[in-house]
């Protein structure tokens, strides 16, 4: 399980889980699960387009997820955010379908972007993953207070002069960056699960932002580590275990909340 070729998988998954835990806290606090689904899923179009014109897939992913973030933020200024997100993801996917139709080589690579191939991560991919992760962490560090305020107490943030439009854009670009980092190594399905489930579960156990972020990171780490280990033993796909463990941790969080509130009433 810890053989040479597996080291890359452990490293990549660990980096992704840490960033996903932190970004996931903001995603859940803002109710932005749809955007966290739309950007990783739609960004595959960028990878398909990149292969069509012969540039690095990472560039395609980056450009497309950033363009997607800008489109969602732009449309959401004039319309409901969920509608803006839905229109953006279908446009991204439709462009992906167009790019795919013009190339014959891409179909298998497409499935690995969706479902991930963390066991096939090679050493060259670790450095870019770690570099983008570092950028994500620095951005969160710089914007931490206004981003936190606008995510948890939007009214107070507005009163204190924090621009909600700017924070929304910053947040969406952060998700775009996370997408660019994670999709090549773990796939869009996995990063989506890691952004939502650990952070949603963590919020059930604590209300304090600092603790909630720490807990989300820990849950995300345990989730991917356990998923890789079980997947290695059973040969079943990692995505299945990440999805299932995520759903189970969230379910236990909800049961905990119910148990607590019943005890408080008694």
């Amino acid at each position: 399980m810890f053989a040479g070729f597996m080291v890359n998988a452990w490293e990549a998954a660990t980096i992704v889980a840490v960033v996903a835990g932190v970004v996931g806290f903001f995603t859940v606090a803002r109710g932005a699960a749809f955007a966290a689904h739309a950007l990783p899923n739609g960004a595959f179009a960028g990878a398909a387009g990149a292969s069509l014109i012969g540039v690095n897939a990472l560039v395609g992913l980056g450009v497309f997820s950033a363009a997607g973030a800008l489109t969602i933020a732009g449309l959401a200024q004039r319309a409901r955010r969920d509608v803006a997100t839905a229109m953006t993801i279908v446009m991204m996917l439709a462009l992906g379908a167009l790019f795919l139709s013009q190339t014959t080589e891409y179909a298998p690579a497409m499935f690995s972007l969706l479902f991930g191939e963390v066991l096939g991560v090679n050493t060259n991919q670790i450095l870019p993953t770690a570099a983008i992760a570092a950028v994500c962490v620095v951005i969160i560090g710089v914007l931490f207070r206004p981003l936190l305020l606008s995510s948890v107490l939007p009214d107070v943030a507005q009163a204190k002069g924090v621009s909600s439009v700017r924070m929304e854009l910053a947040f969406l670009l952060l998700v775009a960056l996370t997408t660019t980092m994670a999709v090549p190594v773990v796939g869009s399905l996995l990063i989506f699960s890691l952004l939502i489930a650990p952070a949603a579960a963590a919020r059930c156990f604590t209300n304090k932002p600092g603790r909630s972020i720490t807990l989300a990171v820990l849950i995300a780490l345990v989730t991917v580590w356990a998923a890789i280990a079980i997947s290695f033993q059973t040969n079943w796909p990692i995505g299945f275990f990440v999805g299932t463990i995520g759903a189970l941790t969230y379910a236990s969080g909800r049961i905990w909340v119910r148990y607590r509130s019943r005890n408080r009433l008694a």
Binding site: A33, F115, A200, G243
Partner: peptide, 16 residues
């Protein structure tokens, strides 16, 4: 929004 996300994540895992 989060509930939809959790159900979607679990279902995609099953699909895999």
């Amino acid at each position: 929004d989060v509930a939809t996300g959790i159900v979607l994540g679990g279902a995609l895992g099953l699909a895999a």
